[in-house]
Design a binder for these strands. Sequence first.
DNA 1: CGATGGGGAAACCGATCGGTGTAATCACGT
DNA 2: ACGTGATTACACCGATCGGTTTCCCCATCG
Lengths: 190, 190
Amino acid sequence: MPTTDKASSRDRLLGAAARLTYRDGVGVGIEALCREAGVSKRSMYQLFDGKDAMLAASLEQRIPRYEALLAHPEAEHATPRERILHVFEQMTKAAADADYRGCPYLAVLVELKDPEHPASVVARGVKERLTETFRAEAERGGAQDPHLLARQLVLVFDGASARAGAQVEHLDDGLATTTVTALLDAAGME
Amino acid sequence: MPTTDKASSRDRLLGAAARLTYRDGVGVGIEALCREAGVSKRSMYQLFDGKDAMLAASLEQRIPRYEALLAHPEAEHATPRERILHVFEQMTKAAADADYRGCPYLAVLVELKDPEHPASVVARGVKERLTETFRAEAERGGAQDPHLLARQLVLVFDGASARAGAQVEHLDDGLATTTVTALLDAAGME
DNA sequence: CGATGGGGAAACCGATCGGTGTAATCACGT
DNA sequence: ACGTGATTACACCGATCGGTTTCCCCATCG
C-alpha cells in the first residue's frame, strides 16, 4: 500500500476543497486546490469528473460533521426547545472564530446563483434537512404550526450565519438565541 | 454635445455592472460589463480606477432606488409597525420575480468575503443604515429594546432575501411578514 | 482647411482559468 | 529482475482574467 493511496488522495482533495472554498469562495482554482491537497491535477481528474463534481462531493462529505455539530449531545434527555436552541448556540460559538464565514452551504448557494449546479443541489438538501429537523422538534414541542415555525427558524439561521460570516453582525450577545426564543414562545412551544 | 457624453457612459457602466453582477455574481468580467454598457474598456478605465472601484460605485448609485423601494409611500400617516412591515412586503413582492436573487448588498458581502473591499464597505453601509432605520421605528413604536429588535429584523431580512434569492424558500405565503409580526409583538411594539 | 485631442476598436500584456496529453517515475507483484 | 499500473511533474490547449497600449477615426476649433 502506497503512502498515499487513492482513498486518501480523495480525502485530501475533498478537505482542501472544503477549506479553500470556504475561505475564498467557489472561484478558487483547481491548481490551488491540488497544491493544497498535495495531489497532482492529473489524479484529481481521475478521481472526479471535474471541478463542479469535486465541489459537490466536498460539500457532501462534510455533511455528517456539520449535522453532528448542530445536534444536541444528549439528544435523549433534551427537550425539543433545548435541541433547537442548541443549534443556535453552536452557531454563536462558531461565529466567535475570526475565520468564521457563515454556513458554507448557504454561501455556495449564494455564490453559484445556479440551483441546478451539483453543489447547489447538495447544499439545498442540507437546508431542507435542517428545516425538517426543526419541524420535527417543533411538532414534538407542541408548536401551533410546526412547519411555519421551522421555516422561521431557518430564516434566522441563515440570516444570522450570513451576517456573522460577513462581519456585519456579531452574535456573541446571544442575538440568535434571543430571536429564536421569541419565535418559539410566539409559536406556543413548550 | 455628443450622443454619448462622459456622464452617460458612466451611467451605462454603472447600470451594466449592477445588472450583470446581480445576475452572475462579482466574478463577471470587465469585458462583458463594457460590452453590455456599450462603452470601450479604455473609457471605463478613464472613468474608474478599476473593477473594484466601479463595482463599489455601482452599488453606491443604486442605494437611493433601493432605499426608496423599502420606504413606506405614505410615510407621514403610517405607523412604525406599518413602515417596518412594508419593508418585508416589498421584499416578498420582489421575491416573486423569477429573476430575484436576494439583496444585492448581502450577496456582494457573501461573495467577496473581504470586509475591506470597497464594495463591501458600501454594502455594509447599506446594512447599517437599514438597521438604524428599523431601530428608529422600533423606538417610535415603543419597543422594549429598539436596537435588539432592529438587529432581529435585519436577521430575518437577510435570511429571507438570501433564501428566496437562492430558490430554497418562497415567501409568497407571507413567511417574512409573519415572522416579523411575531418579533414585533414579542418586543412589545404597538 | 489643417491641427489637435479624446474616445473607440482591438492588439497586447502576463497571469490564470478548467481541462488534457505525455513522458518519466514510482511502488508493486511475480 | 522485470513488467505493470498508478502517479507524478510539466507542457500544453483555447479561453478568459484585469489592465495597458497602440492606432485610427472623428469631432471640434482656429
